[in-house]
């Protein structure tokens, strides 16, 4: 076998080395790529399950207005009361889960589906909703509005 040609042996050795080199390189890539992607901070920044930073500034929420935002995968509503206070509630109506809205004309939260009314504390005051809306805690940090679940 050896006599048949050192040349043949040489190419085989080269081939094996090529496989090994490529394999090691590929493996490094296959490991480093996910790790790199893992280390890049995701768009959401941090877990939104317990608290969420809204993409609007406090100045953009005028008194007597409401704003629907995403809290985890659930809808929530941020309102500024006519007196200027910021409050946040779950925006899923407790009746059948429609998304509620803030009505400037009547100054409280209203569900269009079955005319359910909630006051500015989220309490169901008229119509079919059986329960108040879950309320969240609103904090303003500088120019950011942070809404979190009650602990």
């Amino acid at each position: 076998m050896m006599e048949r040609g050192g040349r043949n042996e040489q190419t085989r050795r080269g081939f094996v080395n090529w496989i090994l080199g490529t394999g090691v390189g590929g493996l490094l890539l296959a490991v480093l790529y996910p790790v790199g992607r893992y280390l890049v901070p995701p768009a959401a920044g941090e877990s939104a399950a317990a608290s969420v930073t809204l993409d609007i500034t406090p100045a953009e929420v005028t008194p007597n207005s409401g704003h629907i935002f995403k809290f985890g995968s659930r809808p929530a509503i941020l309102i500024r009361t006519p007196s200027g206070e910021l409050r946040a509630f779950s925006a899923a109506c407790t009746h059948l889960g429609c998304i509620v809205q803030y009505r400037e004309d009547i100054g409280h939260i209203w569900c269009a589906c079955h005319n359910g009314h909630f006051d500015l504390n989220g309490r169901n005051i008229q119509g079919p909703p059986p329960r108040p809306l879950d309320s969240f805690v609103v904090n303003v940090r500088g120019d950011e509005i942070v809404v979190s679940k009650t602990s």
Binding site: V35, S47, A50
Partner: peptide
């Protein structure tokens, strides 16, 4: 690698793993 996202408190631990699994790329893999 997990230490980069995990938060060791009763309030945050579960949520941070949920975040890791759903939002962090390849978090589920790690």
């Amino acid at each position: 690698l997990l230490l980069f996202y995990y938060r060791p408190s009763a309030e945050d631990a579960y949520e941070s793993i949920q975040f890791l699994m759903a939002e962090v790329e390849f978090g589920w893999l790690i």
